[in-house]
Design a protein around this nucleic acid. Structure first.
Lengths: 353, 353
DNA sequence: TTGTAGGCGTTATCAT
DNA sequence: ATGATAACGCCTACAA
């Protein structure tokens, strides 16, 4: 590896001059600059980022702490972060908590036990200390599933942006708008002539489930549709619960004509239950999901669902962080991005039936 | 941020002693060590990695260059890398080429056009220079899809390990064993009483498709089953081609009793085609896929398929890299990890039919 | 316009 | 066992 000194010697100038062409190219003559550039190229010289960072105490490095990088959501969010950081010449360092690997092999969306375990706390602490030892100038925390992660992180002396995760303190967080997404799904179902709409709910004590439930209720209310409590079925985000709850729904005296499932996994379960009960989709029953997993387009019928702005969440998290770093902290701390409706084939128009 | 000097002052010792406590704890008395530890804790001191790196010219930082972090495969591989690096106190810095984002929005598995474009080359070059400017001591390249990526990377002065990607030069690469995986699927299908086995093939000029085809052929040969060329259908890895080719298969005079699909996506297409043609799975037709995408367990019927050792590939890539760095380069350069058979419901036993 | 010197926080080599 | 000091490669004044 060559140093700035080697370049200076080869170009026949002093190191100060080399440094000047490298940075503020103003006060150096064109000819010397060219000679220096030539030498740089010849030696294939790249500045040593340690020395640079040590001197400037500016790393242009942002840390990502992902609860689980193998989750569907993380990849897109990180892609968005990278996309933005590329344009601003920042790099990324990644740490992965591997929650799903460590918790019950990915079968659990609730991490309370895990979070309270000593092993987990130690893991977070050591991960954070790795991150801060590498002189990151900011951190983006990516949750596996939007939930309250207040106090999961120790105090850091760099700004933190949460995405796909909430805190109840006054920190920056970027999420999609659960309420708006739920409204999108419900309005769509109602517009297509459904009034008996069941809800496949996530655990009611989870923040996103709660917000989506609000969307469900307000949509009904606004369209003056009565709410049947029995139509609200509580699942646990998993396929199996979607199957089981849909089965119960279909056996009711007055089964619903449509189901809004709070995630695609449960919607898959519901679709299979419908099939097993001889109920055709969307003829007898319309279903709308939430998440737009990759597979949803290939379901039979293709699943109408709500698409999440994951990549945008990532790039906005990065943008927010860099704005904070630049001393232009945005006003809004809890940003909610709109979801998109993906209309496919699992919802029929019953208006003329 | 505190420095080693602050700690020394607080503990009433010299910086050399603090450094000794931090590193080779041997030649320092227990009492002073304790005092120093105390001071470290009190100041919440963490060593500055720039200064450390500058001095030692050892970053303990490995770079990951992922072709597309939002792909299903990348997440698991990176998880594996992190898992191993955690145990060895190495950190990770991540760069993402975002191939799918930049290419045709994720709809294309063939990147030749993209790879040959100037924009892409510039992108790779700048990404690599970012990575090497951050003083990584090694690089792991993660492909989106196993293929030959020789010469995609410029010359680097650190070792590179390829995973989920091949080169035809003498570099380290970690992949799963396409041949063995295909044999696993075929032996399973044959063991269950099938002799008329069709193949949903990927593009024949792709390395994994070629190897899996070899597995198909050798399995037939070993069991003295005649190969019908018409049973070998070429798709393009996508759902739609699986659907189309399966439809053709079902319309043949002598349709197959089983299909081995070279990936799950095409298998999904085949399953839906079978359904549309009134052909029941696995009663009339058995299907075995390849990849074990998350959704495959939820298909109706649940798809039997080949599971990829992605996480293991990641951890082994990291292990290999660190071994090379430690001066213990493994003999084997092209490592192939075995796949696993996931037996589910899409394959029936026809032996007693 | 160009060169020189001091210091960023560590570690390692000497003395003590 | 502990302390002083000289690098590591770069940047930034300031001097020439």
């Amino acid at each position: 590896m060559h140093t700035i000194r080697d370049v200076a010697k080869l170009a026949g100038v002093s190191i100060g001059t080399v440094s000047n062409v490298l940075n503020n190219q103003a006060k150096v003559s064109k000819q010397t600059a060219e000679r220096v550039q030539e030498a740089i190229k010849q030696l294939n010289y790249t500045p040593n980022s340690f020395a640079k960072g040590l001197k400037s105490s500016q790393s242009r490095l942002i840390g990502i702490l992902s609860e689980d990088i193998s989750s569907f959501f993380s990849g897109y969010i990180i892609d968005g972060i990278c996309e933005y950081c590329d344009t601003k010449d920042y790099s990324i360092t990644l740490c992965n908590l591997g929650i799903n690997r460590k918790a019950m092999h990915g079968t659990c969306f609730f991490y309370k036990d895990l979070e309270e375990s000593d092993a987990f706390k130690k893991n977070v602490a050591s991960t954070v200390s790795i991150l801060s030892a590498s002189q990151i100038c900011g951190l983006i925390y990516i949750g596996t599933h939007p939930r309250d992660v207040t106090a999961i992180l120790p105090d850091l002396d760099v700004p933190v942006i949460y995405t796909h995760a909430y805190t109840h303190t006054d920190t920056y967080s970027i999420n999609y708008d659960d309420y708006q997404g739920a409204r999108l799904a419900m309005d769509y179902l109602i517009k297509n002539g459904n009034s008996r709409i069941a809800l496949l709910c996530g655990p009611i004590d989870s923040v996103p489930a709660h917000k989506r439930l609000l969307g469900y209720q307000s949509a009904l209310m606004e369209h003056q549709i009565q709410l049947y409590p029995d139509y609200i079925r509580q699942g646990d985000w998993h396929y199996e619960s979607g199957y089981a709850e849909c089965a119960k729904l279909l056996q009711m005296k007055k089964p619903p004509t449509a189901i809004f499932s709070m995630n695609d996994n449960m919607a898959y379960g519901a679709m299979n239950a419908a099939q097993d009960f001889g109920c055709s989709i969307p003829g007898d029953l319309s279903i709308c999901g939430f998440d737009n997993l990759e597979h949803s387009a290939y379901m039979r019928p293709a699943l109408s669902t709500i698409q999440l702005p994951l990549r945008k969440m990532g790039s906005l998290a990065a943008e927010t962080l860099l704005d904070v770093l630049d001393g232009n902290p945005p006003q809004e701390t809890g940003l909610l991005l709109p979801c998109l409706l993906k209309e496919r084939a699992s919802v029929a128009n019953r208006n003329f039936a």
